[in-house]
Simulated assay, not measured.
Amino acid sequence: MPAATACPITLTASDRHHLKKAAYGHKTEHQARIRAQIVLHAARGRSNARIAAEIRLHVDTVRTWRGRFAHGGLPALADRKRSGRPARFTPVQVAETKALACQLPAEAGVPLSRWSCPELAAELTARGIADSISASTVRRWLREDALKPWQYRSWIFITDPDFRAKAQRVLGLYARTWQGKPLGADEYVISADEKTSVQARCRCHPTLPPGRARAMRVNHTYGRGGALAYLAAYDVHAAQVSGRCEKTTGIEPFMNLVTQVMSQEPYASAKRVFWVVDNGSSHRGKRAADRLSAAFPNAVLVHTPVHASWLNQVEIFFSAVQRKVVSPNAFTDLTQVGDRLRAFEDRYNATAQPFQWRFTTSDLDDLLARLSRHTSAGRQEESSVALAA
């Protein structure tokens, strides 16, 4: 008998976004992560047997979840409902709870800036929506509906008119391409930036190491020993860092970092070295690009879009420095800070691997499409308000 053909999988931009978030999210449950990875592999046209070998699953498991997604989409990846205890609350009560959570407390006459689950539970009881309800029940409802009224996020509209073009250039360099052509073996990509105000805080009492049933204890009071700026240049594909400490940031300290990197091999004799930087004052605009190319003809300055420092991979390294070197901050003076940073560079370079950068141009297009929809909806709402006024 002929072998059964695997179900073809085609993803929309929204499906791909949710699946990648589930497949690589740190807080995703293991089962949800595996199912998302199966679908993503299937969307690339891979066979069930190959997917099973790569993820180390039985081929029947791969076939099951591939088929469920093909016939039911994202909702089909969830566990099917099972019978249980009869519901204590009606769907109307659940809907009224979520509607209240969507309102600002000030609109309900409550002197709060944000709702918490205990406060929502008390408000539901006060309004007679429920005779009694626990905060954990409210929390479960909102978690299932992705509403967390006790949290908030700040955000900003894209203001750079060339956002896509600039972001695409940076993403292309991470994929070892420039202007549609692959980079040569003698071309390198450097991600550089400054970490400002790394302080030396001398604790008034020594830090106590972890003990039996006790976490490490860091004394709250400290004396200030000054601050320095840490400048780093990260080779994106070799995962090597060159850094230096300066008294402050600025054009001269940044050019000192460039000179330190470009005067050593393999960058000194490279055909081109691309420097990916943000729009900080030390390396902003065409003047900075001209200054860099005048000092080093084989250096090319590439700016990220405005308000898009998250596209700069050196920021990931700086987050590791903050977690592993700076916090908790307990240094006697700035010399100790500099020595610790240099020692960490040597330790990092000995074992580091390139970052697994997963944000591609397809993800960029999906992001811009979502932002465009939000912008259009906001403008329509403003127009409606203006007409009503």
Rank of each mutant, 00 (worst) to 15 (best):
A377L: 09
T360V: 01
D363H: 08
A377Q: 14
L364I: 04
S362N: 11
H374G: 10
T361F: 00
L387F: 06
S372A: 15
D365V: 01
E382C: 06
A389C: 08
V385L: 10
E381K: 13
P354C: 02
A386Q: 12
R358C: 05
R370G: 08
S376D: 15
R358K: 10
D365S: 03
A386N: 10
G378M: 12
T361I: 05
W357V: 02
R373T: 07
S384D: 07
F355I: 08
H374W: 13
Q380W: 07
F359G: 02
F355C: 09
W357K: 04
L371N: 10
A377M: 07
S376F: 10
S384R: 13
R379S: 12
S376E: 15
R358P: 04
S383M: 13
R379M: 14
E381W: 10
F359A: 01
E382W: 03
S383D: 13
L371Y: 07
S383Y: 12
L387C: 05
Q356V: 11
D366V: 00
P354H: 02
L368P: 04
R370P: 02
R358Q: 12
D366M: 02
L364G: 00
A369M: 04
R373L: 09
R379A: 09
T361Q: 13
R370K: 08
R370Q: 08
A369R: 14
H374T: 11
L371G: 07
A377Y: 01
L387H: 11
S383T: 08
S376Q: 15
A388T: 07
G378H: 12
S383Q: 14
D363I: 00
W357I: 01
S372G: 15
D363C: 11
A377F: 08
A369D: 11
L368K: 04
A388N: 07
G378R: 15
